[in-house]
Amino acid sequence: MLLWQLFVSFLKIGFMSFGGGYAVISMIQYETNRFGWVSGEELRQAVSLSGMSPGSIATNSATLIGYRAAGLPGAIAATTGIVLPSLIVVILIAACFYRLHSSFWVKSSFYGLRPIITGLIVYAAIHFGFPDRSAGAIFNWTTFATLLIGAASFAAVTKYKIHPLKILFLSACAGIILF
């Protein structure tokens, strides 16, 4: 059943969503391809809309994909699925292993986990920047202009610490001029 499938898939993703939203995009993409909930282009739109909204990009993407796949019940199933693991894991940590963070096991797992998350985020960026990786699609105006805005927004976030909302607004204006 579609709702159950959405719930279980996002539940799995939720348990693995270390490092926040952007690493999760790769996982969502994998599950979406497998089940065919939405097309590649719709997924890209969902990620962009999620980036425009407050809150976690992972949860927002789950909501949008659930909605596109099965309407409001789908949105609820997917969102519950991705949020529930956080609730369960945090309650377990708070109830049992309070001083978990300083332990050897946690430190060494995170030592291996962080580079993998970096890989996942870079992979998500490549997929997002080049949704169609044929030669004709890579060297065209849309890709070029998207990369240009992307580079500007990267610099604005990391170097100048400009508020994301401002960047989104300016990029929308740039889009209207460039495309």
Binding site: G19, G21, F128, T146, A172
Partner: peptide, 21 residues
Amino acid sequence: AAMKGINGAVLGFIGAAAYRM
């Protein structure tokens, strides 16, 4: 067109997340 511009901004956000990580 505006959405395409926002795609670019989000691409930059993903890049920034990768850089920080």
